[in-house]
């Protein structure tokens, strides 16, 4: 089990391979559907970002409300492929890693390879377990979006698996999106 800490640099990312299990500590930023739409609008119009995207990790997540006495509520990953169309502008602006759940379109793998970025998956449907790995939560942008706002999370030993590495290798096989059918992978290797 590899332990990695933010800020992630290109060397750390290069050393990680699809299928590797890692524990991430440091700062990550939540952003899902509507926040992505807004960020890309801001990029297009050359407007100021709510936070500096350069070198950052984006977590596709919309947490529940925060229960009394807790740092954060349930906070697992959401389906990543809904954000596929937003990946390139974000990586171009300097985002270096994404965390979500599920496979991604083929073109996303090409973009990840182009920018030498990385896509991790977090335990899906395990938002209570992941809440225990969050040390602090701070609102940094788009407050009116409620659970879809951007939050800065400080995490410790956040469990992740590398789903697409910087070379474009994908644990879900060439199809990415679909099921990994038994025997299919062997066929692909031939």
């Amino acid at each position: 089990m590899k332990k990695i800490t933010t800020p992630l640099n290109k060397n750390i990312i290069k050393s990680l391979k699809a299928g590797d299990e890692v524990l991430l500590s440091g700062i990550i930023y939540t952003a899902r559907d509507q926040a992505h739409k807004k960020i890309v609008e801001l990029i297009k119009n050359n407007k100021k970002m709510p936070f500096d995207l350069n070198g950052q990790v984006i977590y596709y997540c919309g947490p529940t409300a925060t229960p009394k006495g807790k740092v954060i509520g349930s906070c697992g990953p959401t389906t990543a492929n809904r954000m596929d169309g937003f990946v390139e502008p974000l990586l171009k602006t300097g985002v270096i890693a994404m965390i979500g759940k599920g496979g991604r379109a083929r073109f996303v793998k090409d973009i990840i390879r182009k920018y030498k970025a990385i896509y991790f998956i977090a335990p899906s449907g395990c938002g209570a377990l992941l809440a225990k790995k969050v040390l602090s939560k701070k609102l940094v942008g788009f407050k009116y979006l409620g659970p879809e706002a951007i939050y800065e999370l400080q995490v410790k030993d956040f469990p992740l698996v590398v789903a697409i590495d910087s070379k474009g290798n994908d644990i879900y096989g060439k199809k990415g999106q679909g099921a990994r059918v038994r025997g299919q992978e062997r066929k692909e290797k031939r």
Binding site: E21, C61, G62, P63, T64, P67, K70, G73, S74, C75, G76, T78, P123, G125, C126, G127, A128, L129, A131, K132, P147, P159
Partner: peptide
């Protein structure tokens, strides 16, 4: 391991009254 996470998650959610999944 994934199934282990899911079972641990269920135990934590029940014990701490945190939603099993953020998508309620």
């Amino acid at each position: 391991k994934a199934l282990g996470w899911i079972l641990d998650n269920a135990a934590i959610a029940k014990e701490e009254k945190i939603a099993i999944c953020q998508d309620t």
